[in-house]
Design a protein around this nucleic acid. Sequence first.
DNA 1: CGGTCTACCTGAAAGC
DNA 2: TGCTTTCAGGTAGACC
Length: 273
Amino acid sequence: MPELPEVETIRSGLSEHILGQTVQRVSIYSPKLRYPVDLNPEQLQGQKIQSVNRRGKYLLFTLERQQILCHLGMSGRLWLIKNDQAKRQKHDHVDIQLETHCLRYHDPRRFGLLLTINPGEQHVLLKNLGPEPLTHDFNTRYLQKILARRQTAIKQVIMNNHIVVGVGNIYANEALFRAGIHPMIACDTLSEKEIQSLVSEIKKTLKSAIKSGGTTLKDFTDIRSQPGYFSQKLLVYGRHGKPCLRCNHTLEFIQQQGRRSFYCGVCQLFRSS
DNA sequence: CGGTCTACCTGAAAGC
DNA sequence: TGCTTTCAGGTAGACC
């Protein structure tokens, strides 16, 4: 579900409310996520939350003696609920009871994860991640080098979190449209100008989505159940059959690696290699 | 190493 | 109405 802007929206919302709070109790109702939840309630109890950070689509909660790594997968959600409203529903898997609120992990499809990181440990899931797209480490020269030694469609490259983190199906489609690049073009045929434009549009799209509080398609909300408003600014995602907002040509979609790619055949001309 | 495909899981929507 | 099929925001790991 959530891509970088949605995770960032959750991170900043949580930060405002839970920093400095002490864990009162941890309840694991169902440990069956992508990996079994390995949080240790006894160890966590009494620890203060010092920071909430984000790496790609991962959230990292730093406590006094441990860190908690969290990924929301496709359908994971984190809610902050007031203590008196804490009645459990289907697919609520873990509660972290704090002083004023309960931090609740909910995930119908169970593709997410909640894992412990011990001090000094470099978690294997974080080890081989690419640069953050909103830092200078993600730049034209970097992407140029990567693209030159690969032979696959450009969309797959920008969705590969070993190359750049945080770009999922929605923002890959949006950024490619804004850069005028067809999703199926072989990545090693992009010009320097196109690569520059793509890097720039990825950054701009993500920043703009963060500003809007993320994208709500079906059910994304922030920790207070407010939807994100970037859905109203989507130019191609989910708009197949509708007119391109730039040239009026009817938008199309193709299946690519099992995922849908939405594009405008006029604004994003295909060329074979 | 790089590229492609599958599996993990549930629910909503579409198709019949 | 109800049964079946398809699809969904992610990504590690198996395979070639």
